[in-house]
Design a protein around this nucleic acid. Structure first.
Length: 974
DNA sequence: CGGGAATTAAG
DNA sequence: ACTTAATTCCC
C-alpha cells in the first residue's frame, strides 16, 4: 500500500485515502457505507503512516523552531498503541505527563492518531452515561465540567464569513480559513491555547453545527499535496510550544444536499464509536443514531458552521482522555449564501428624495433574499447615536431577482426642514441582524412649498429694495439693465391687466381654471389676443430674438437657443396670421404645416423628444404667459393632435408633464385641447398615476373636475400592474384614495397584476384601517371580499396570513359567513337570548349585571321584540318597501334610529368619554373596542358613515347590541 | 485567490 | 412556466 496516499482518521479509527473516493457518497471522509461501520482488517495500525501537514504549516507561525524529528513521528509506535481505560481525568496534571512529554518530544504535531478503541463512554467527558448520543450534553447536564483541570481558550477566532466551496470546485487553491484578525500581512489563523495543563496533549479541531452540539455534515479540510484531508484535525501541543495550537490552511467543503444525511450520519457514528471506544455499535444504537441524524439533517443550517476544539491526553496505555471541556468558535458563515453572505448596496437610483417620503427608490444590492431583507434609513448625530430611523416600504415582489429592491422612501421625521438633510441607508437582514456596509448617503429635500416660501421671501426683499431686479435668477452683471427693468414693468402691468379683466384679484390657478380663461382659449378670443400683444411687441422689437426676450419672464432662463428659437418662429407665424385678419384657407393651411413642422423638428432635435408643449409645461418656474400663448397657438392652428397624442420618448403627454411638475393649472386647458387623460406612458402610467405617485393632489382634483366629456379610466394599470387607487393605497394616502373612489367606485374591484391583490387586499397589507373602512364603505362588497389574490387569499385570509389582528377583526365582521368565526357582540342584558344559545357561558352571563345607576335602567330588560315594536311604530310613516324590510331587518330600524344626528353625536360622545360611570355602557364599550368599533366611531365623522356601516356590515345581533346600548343610554325615546 | 456567471435542480 | 436556490464552471 502506498503510504503517502493514506492517513489515519481518528474519528473513524481507520485509514483514509487522501484522494477523495469517487465511489463514496460525498467522497470526503471515507469509503464507509453509511449504514455499516466496520473496520477493515486491512487497515491495521501497522500500515499507517501519519502525516504532519499541520505541524509543517504550524511551525513557522510559532516562536519555537520545529524539531526535524517531528516529521518522522508519523510512524512512531506510539501512535499505533491502543488506548486503555483511565478513570481520573485530572490525574495527569502533575503525574506522568513528563514521560509522555518525552515521547512526544515537546513538539506540536499534526497527526491523526490511531488510538481510539475501547474507551468506555462514561469516561469520555464524563463519569456519567451520556444523555445524548454523540454530543456533549452529558458534560453540562452532569456538571462534570468542573472536574476538568485544563481549559481550552480560543486565542483567535476564525473569520466570520468564509466561502464554503462545493467539492466540485475544490481543485486549485482557494483561500484558507483565516483568523478574525487576519490581514494581508500578517495572516492569522484559528488558534487555541490549552491552559492549566502540563505535559503533552492533543488538540482536535472539527466542524460542528451552530445550533446543536453535533457534528456538521460539511467537511473541514486541510489541503495537502493536491488532496483534501477531512476533519477532525489533531495537533500536538506541549509546554515548549506554549500549548498553542494553530490550525492553518483549512477550508470548508459544502456537502451537497443529497449527501447531507450520509455525511452527518457517518460523522456522528464515528464520533460515537470514538467515545464508546468500541469497534461496532449495536443495532439499536445505530437505529437511534439514524433517527437522530434524520432529525438533525432536516433542518441543519448549511450556511453556518463552527469549529469545535477538544483536548486530549494520551496516556501510556494510549488511551485518549479528554482533559478539557470542548470549546466552540464563533459561527462561520457562508459568504456565498444569500442567507448569511455580506450585504451590500451597490447603487441607488437617486441620491435624494422628498422629506414627504414615498419616492420610488431602486437599490441594486448583492444577493439578498426577499423574505429576509429590510432597507433602513437612519440619521446619526455626531456621537454616532441614532436620532432617527425609518424603513423603506416594499414588498417581496419588489425584490428583483435577489439583486435589486424597488422601494418607497420613508418620510423624514421633520417635514418642514428648510435645507437638505443627509441621512444614511443600509440593508438589514433580520434573521441575523446583519447590516450592509458601508451605509450609503441619502439626502432628504425640503418640500417644494417650503422652498418656494423661502424663495418668495428672498424675492420680495430683493424687489422691494432694488425695485426692479427681475429675480435672483437673472443677476448676471453684464445684462443690460434696461431689459430686465422693462421686463419687470411689463410683467406687473400684465398681471394688473389680467386682474382688471376679471374684475378682481386672481391667482394664477384661479385664472387658468376660470370660465373666462377657458373662453380665452377659444379661437378668436379677443382677451387672449390682448394678453399676447405685449409679448409680440417684445418679440418683434427685439431683433435678437426670443433668447433675450425671455429674460422678461421670470424663471425661463433655461429656455435656451433651441427651444426659444423654435418658439419664437412659431409665435411669429401665429402673430402674422392673427394680424392678417382674414386669410385664405391655403395660407392658413400653409402656416399650419409650418408650425407643425417646427414643433416636430424641435421635438426630434430634443434629447428626450420633448415637444415645445412639454417644455413649456415643465419649465422650472410656472410661466403663465408662455403657456397661454402656446396653448393658444395649438388651438389656433388646430394642432390638437399635438396635445392629444404627441409623446416624448418616455411616452409622456403634456398631461404627464403637468402632473409630474405639479402644474394643476394646466390640466384643464390641456384637457380642453384634447389631451387624452387615459394616455399611458412607457411605464404604463397615466397622468393620474403620475399625480398620485407624486402626491400632487391639486392635479388630481383637477382631473376630477375635468370638462364635460372627459372621462378618466381608473382601471388602467401601469407596468407595475397598479391602478392609481392601488398606488394611493400603497402610499397610505386615504384622502387620495377617497377621491379616486368617489370618482369611480368600480375601480375598487380591479386587482393589480403583480400579486392579484385588489384594493382591499392592499389596504390589509398596509394595515391601514382607515383605508379599509373607506373601501368597505364604498360599495356593496361581496366581490372584493371574495376576490382571491394570486396566492389564493381573500382579503380576510390575507389579513389572517399576515397576522394582522385589527384587520382580521374588522374584516371578519363584514364577511357574509361571519356568524360563527367572527367575534361575537354579546347582546346586553337580554338573558333570554343568552339562554337560548349559550346560557352556560359564565363570561357572557356577567353581562347581565343590572345597571342601576342608569336613568333608563328599566329599559335594560326590554326584550328585542319590544324594541322592534318601537321601531315599527316609528316607521309606519316610512315608505312601504322599507317598512316591509324593516319588519325583519333590525339594521334598518337602527338606521332609522340613528338618522337622528343628535342621537348619533350623543352616542359618539359618550363612547369616547374616557371614564364612564355607566357600567353597561362601559361594558358595551369594551366589547365595541374589541371589535374595533372605537376606531370606526372615531373615523366616522357623521352619522351617515356609521349608518352606512351598520347597514352593510353589521349582523342582526350586532345591531341589536347596538340598539340596546342606545336604549340604555336613554336615546331610544323620541 | 476571489469573484462571477452559467448550469441544473427544486419549489 | 417561471422563479429561486443549489451546484458547477470558469476567468
Amino acid at each position: 500500500m502506498n503510504q503517502q496516499q493514506q492517513y489515519f482518521d481518528l474519528d473513524q479509527g481507520k485509514n483514509i485515502p487522501y484522494v477523495n473516493d469517487c465511489c463514496s457518497t460525498s467522497g470526503y471522509s471515507s469509503n464507509n457505507s453509511p449504514t455499516s461501520m466496520t473496520l477493515s482488517p486491512s487497515h491495521s495500525p501497522e500500515t499507517l503512516n501519519l502525516q504532519n501537514e499541520f505541524a509543517q504549516l504550524n511551525l513557522p507561525a510559532l516562536s519555537n523552531s520545529p524539531s526535524p524529528r517531528l516529521q518522522q513521528l508519523g510512524g512512531s509506535p506510539y501512535h499505533q498503541n491502543q488506548m486503555m481505560a483511565n478513570g481520573n481525568l485530572c490525574m495527569e496534571i502533575d503525574g506522568n505527563a513528563a514521560s509522555i512529554g518525552s515521547i512526544l518530544n515537546g513538539n506540536a504535531t499534526f497527526g491523526n492518531i490511531n488510538s481510539m478503541q475501547h474507551m468506555p463512554v462514561d469516561q469520555f467527558y464524563a463519569t456519567q452515561p451520556p444523555q445524548t448520543i454523540g454530543g456533549f450534553h452529558q458534560i453540562d447536564a452532569g456538571g462534570i465540567k468542573n472536574e476538568y483541570c485544563a481549559q481550552l481558550h480560543i486565542a483567535e477566532q476564525p473569520v466570520e464569513k468564509f466561502r464554503f466551496r462545493y467539492k466540485s470546485e475544490m481543485h486549485g487553491t482557494h483561500g484558507s480559513l483565516n483568523g478574525i484578525n487576519s490581514k494581508r500581512t500578517p495572516k492569522t489563523f484559528p488558534e487555541v491555547i490549552l491552559r492549566n495543563y502540563s505535559g503533552p496533549a492533543v488538540i482536535r479541531c472539527s466542524l460542528f453545527q451552530t445550533n446543536l452540539d453535533s457534528p456538521h455534515s460539511h467537511q473541514l479540510v486541510v489541503r495537502k499535496d493536491e488532496r483534501d484531508v477531512c476533519d477532525p484535525h489533531d495537533l500536538h501541543v506541549s509546554q515548549e510550544r506554549g500549548y498553542v495550537a494553530q490550525f492553518i490552511n483549512m477550508g470548508i467543503i459544502h456537502t451537497a444536499k443529497k449527501y447531507i444525511f450520509d455525511e452527518l450520519f457517518k460523522k456522528k457514528q464515528d464520533r460515537l464509536v470514538f467515545q464508546m471506544g468500541r469497534r461496532e455499535l449495536s443495532t439499536k444504537q445505530l437505529q437511534e443514531l439514524h433517527q437522530e441524524t434524520e432529525r438533525e439533517a432536516k433542518d441543519m443550517n448549511l450556511n453556518q458552521v463552527r469549529l469545535c476544539f477538544e483536548a486530549f491526553k494520551i496516556e501510556n496505555n494510549q488511551k485518549w482522555t479528554p482533559i478539557a471541556p470542548p470549546v466552540f468558535s464563533n459561527p462561520i458563515n457562508n459568504r456565498k449564501s444569500a442567507q448569511t453572505g455580506e450585504l451590500r448596496i451597490t447603487r441607488l437610483s437617486k441620491p435624494t428624495g422628498s422629506v414627504m417620503g414615498n419616492d420610488e427608490l431602486i437599490l441594486l444590492v448583492e444577493k439578498v433574499s426577499k423574505k429576509n431583507i429590510k432597507v433602513r434609513f437612519f440619521e446619526e448625530n455626531d456621537d454616532g447615536e441614532t436620532v432617527w430611523e425609518a424603513y423603506a416600504k416594499f414588498r417581496e415582489s419588489d425584490v428583483h431577482h435577489q439583486y435589486a429592491i424597488v422601494c418607497q422612501t420613508p418620510a423624514y421625521k421633520d417635514k418642514d426642514v428648510e435645507r437638505e438633510v443627509a441621512v444614511s441607508i443600509e440593508l438589514i437582514r433580520p434573521s441575523d441582524d446583519e447590516r450592509s456596509f458601508p451605509p450609503l448617503p441619502f439626502r432628504y429635500k425640503p418640500r417644494d412649498a417650503i422652498i418656494s416660501r423661502k424663495r418668495r421671501r428672498t424675492c420680495s426683499t430683493l424687489t422691494s429694495s432694488t425695485s426692479s431686479s427681475s429675480g435672483s435668477l437673472h443677476n448676471s452683471m453684464d445684462l443690460p439693465k434696461t431689459v430686465p427693468q422693462m421686463g419687470a414693468a411689463n410683467v406687473s402691468l400684465h398681471d394688473q391687466t389680467i386682474s382688471q379683466e376679471f374684475g378682481r384679484e386672481f391667482t394664477v390657478d384661479q385664472l387658468l381654471n376660470s370660465e373666462s380663461f377657458r373662453k380665452m382659449l377659444e379661437p378668436n378670443s379677443s382677451e387672449l389676443e390682448k394678453l399676447c400683444v405685449p409679448d409680440i411687441g417684445c418679440l418683434e422689437h427685439d431683433g435678437l430674438g426670443y433668447e433675450q426676450t425671455q429674460s422678461n419672464y421670470v424663471g425661463i432662463t433655461h429656455y435656451r437657443s433651441l427651444s426659444s428659437t423654435y418658439l419664437t418662429e412659431i409665435f411669429k407665424i401665429y402673430d402674422a396670421n392673427r394680424r392678417a385678419g382674414k386669410i385664405s384657407a391655403e395660407d392658413f393651411a400653409n402656416s399650419c404645416s409650418k408650425v407643425q413642422n417646427l414643433f416636430t423638428t424641435h421635438a426630434l432635435k430634443n434629447v428626450n423628444n420633448d415637444t415645445l408643449l412639454h417644455e413649456v409645461i415643465s419649465q422650472r418656474t410656472d410661466n403663465l404667459k408662455l403657456a397661454i400663448k402656446t396653448f393658444k397657438v395649438i388651438e389656433y392652428f388646430k394642432l390638437q393632435e399635438l396635445a392629444h397624442s404627441v409623446l416624448n420618448l418616455d411616452g409622456d403627454s403634456g398631461l404627464h408633464v403637468a402632473c409630474q411638475h405639479d402644474r394643476p393649472n394646466y390640466i384643464r386647458p390641456l384637457l380642453s385641447l384634447g389631451c387624452n387623460p387615459n394616455q399611458q406612458n412607457h411605464i404604463g402610467n397615466t397622468a393620474l398615476h403620475v399625480a398620485v405617485k407624486e402626491k400632487h393632489t391639486n392635479c388630481i382634483d383637477f382631473f376630477f373636475n375635468a370638462p364635460n366629456g372627459v372621462r378618466l379610466d381608473l382601471s388602467l394599470k401601469n407596468d407595475d400592474g397598479l391602478t392609481p387607487l392601488h398606488m394611493a393605497i400603497r402610499q397610505n394616502s386615504s384622502d387620495v384614495a377617497k377621491k379616486l373612489i368617489n370618482y369611480d367606485r368600480s375601480s375598487i374591484n380591479v386587482s393589480n397584476t403583480t400579486d392579484g391583490n385588489n384594493a382591499l387586499h392592499m389596504a390589509v397589507l398596509e394595515q391601514n384601517v382607515e383605508l379599509l373602512v373607506l373601501i368597505l364603505d364604498a360599495q356593496n362588497l361581496t366581490d372584493i371580499l371574495m376576490a382571491k389574490n394570486s396566492a389564493g387569499y381573500t382579503p380576510l385570509e390575507l389579513a389572517r396570513a399576515k397576522d394582522n389582528e385589527s384587520c382580521v377583526l374588522l374584516l371578519q365582521k363584514v364577511y357574509p359567513d361571519k356568524g360563527e368565526s367572527a367575534m361575537t357582540w354579546i347582546p346586553l342584558n337580554v338573558k333570554e337570548e343568552m339562554d337560548s344559545s349559550s346560557a352556560e357561558d359564565d363570561d357572557e352571563s356577567n353581562l347581565d349585571v343590572p345597571t342601576s345607576s342608569m336613568s333608563s335602567s328599566s329599559l335594560s330588560t326590554v326584550k328585542t321584540e319590544e324594541i322592534d315594536m318601537d321601531f315599527k311604530t316609528e316607521q309606519e310613516d316610512e315608505d312601504h318597501a322599507k317598512q316591509a324590510d324593516a319588519a325583519i331587518d333590525p339594521k334598518i330600524k337602527l338606521e332609522q334610529l340613528l338618522s337622528n344626528k343628535n342621537k348619533f353625536d350623543q352616542l359618539v360622545k359618550q363612547l369616547n368619554e374616557p371614564s364612564s360611570h355607566n357600567p353597561a355602557l362601559s361594558k358595551w364599550k369594551e366589547l365595541a373596542e374589541k371589535a374595533l368599533l372605537s376606531q370606526l366611531v372615531f373615523l366616522w365623522s357623521s352619522s351617515e358613515g356609521m349608518l352606512k356601516y351598520i347597514h352593510h356590515k353589521s349582523s342582526d345581533q350586532e345591531c341589536r347590541s347596538f340598539a340596546r346600548a342606545l336604549q340604555e343610554l336613554g336615546m331610544l325615546n323620541a
